[in-house]
């Protein structure tokens, strides 16, 4: 039974991957943009899920780490003439350090207080960028537009246009990050994350170094967000940090994690696609009134939470569990829906 389900999910994952690889051939340039956005959004949500879903530390500030990645890449490309890919290791290193730096004070805080401090990071970040990065930007602003990444000769077989090539770069990085996250949560560190979330005292009795796990979770999730930010430069051609954007992004990452399903591997990815395409859908409903789009999206969120309080993946699992029960099989321990 369990192995059958494993194969089924593997087959589904392969089908989805095949579709995602086919997307740039199918859609034109402007339709490809949301698909690319959804990819980097997924990566940020994957990282936040490690922190919030598995480790129980709520962050509403990951838009700032996203920005750290975007700016690191943009500055290195624009002012040091780097290629895109070599900037990624630097981005990860920088974000690990910055994330850990915030992870240490976070050790003292829990729940609401932590969420609010991270919100402060998101609120502060645009001001800091304006102050310190504007010397790199166009005309003294904090907007940086590095040279675009173009499709090389060897890729002409599958990606004639530059945006197709960039999409495939995103997809490859995204799949690598997903596999890394999946392995991480199934391994020793992942079990430590969950143990610390569920019961700190018990976890520490069993020899889990709580401080190391919590700071580690913060650093790794910051690195994920930063990689996502760096990839966003690939898609948008610029790094920018508007006050509203950083705040919105921070919120939307969390939204993606929760509506997808916290503490599941596929959840944040599904959530990211729902967030990106849900907003597009909201825009299309009232074509003549673009300012109503957030209202539609907000209502969508509220309804989703009423119907699927444990997220899309959680709802799906409940459905499966109910079906397998009606097959005459005993219910799985996890089958009883959370009350």
């Amino acid at each position: 039974m369990a192995s059958r389900r494993k194969w089924t999910s593997f087959a589904v994952a392969m089908l989805v991957l095949a579709w995602l690889a086919y997307v740039p051939q199918f859609y034109g340039q402007s339709e490809l943009v949301p698909w690319s956005e959804a990819l980097y959004f997924s990566i940020a949500a994957l990282g936040l899920n490690l922190l919030t879903g598995y480790n129980g530390q709520i962050s509403i500030g990951h838009g700032a780490f996203f920005g750290v990645g975007a700016y690191t890449t943009a500055i290195l490309m624009e002012h040091n003439a780097w290629q895109f890919l070599p900037t990624l290791p630097i981005v990860i290193a920088v974000a690990l350090v910055v994330g850990a730096a915030f992870g240490f004070p976070a050790l003292r805080l829990k729940g609401l207080y932590l969420a609010l401090i991270t919100l402060g990071i998101a609120a502060l970040f645009p001001d800091l960028v304006n102050r310190f990065a504007s010397k790199y930007g166009t005309a003294g602003t904090s907007l940086i537009q590095p040279p675009r990444v173009l499709a090389p000769e060897w890729a002409s077989g599958f990606a004639e246009a530059d945006d197709q090539y960039r999409y495939y770069m995103l997809l490859v990085v995204g799949v690598v990050m997903l596999i890394l996250a999946a392995n991480l949560v199934r391994g020793r560190f992942g079990r430590a994350l969950v143990a610390v979330r569920d019961h700190e005292a018990a976890a520490s009795t069993l020899g889990v170094n709580i401080a190391r796990v919590k700071v580690g979770a913060f650093a790794i999730s910051a690195a994920y967000a930063a990689v996502a930010g760096s990839l966003s430069v690939l898609v948008n051609g610029s790094a920018n940090a508007g006050k509203i954007e950083v705040f919105r992004q921070s919120i939307l990452f969390l939204v993606a994690v929760v509506i997808g399903g916290t503490a599941t591997v596929a959840g944040p990815v599904i959530g990211a696609y729902v967030v990106v395409f849900g907003q597009d859908f909201a825009k299309d409903i009232f074509d003549d009134k673009p300012e109503l789009a957030p209202a539609v999206f907000g209502v969508l969120l509220v309804v989703l939470m009423y119907v699927l309080p444990d997220g899309i993946v959680g709802g799906w699992r409940r459905l499966i569990a109910r079906r397998s029960r009606s097959d005459g099989l005993p219910p799985l321990p996890s089958a009883s829906p959370a009350h």
């Binding site: 939204v255 509506i259 209502v299 309080p309």
Partner: peptide, 26 residues
Amino acid sequence: VEHASPFVILIVTIGMFLAISSITVT
């Protein structure tokens, strides 16, 4: 959602945040 997890309530108030601000502008 009163008895749901804190996450769910947080997302509902975020949804309200987005909705109210855009309705106000409209």
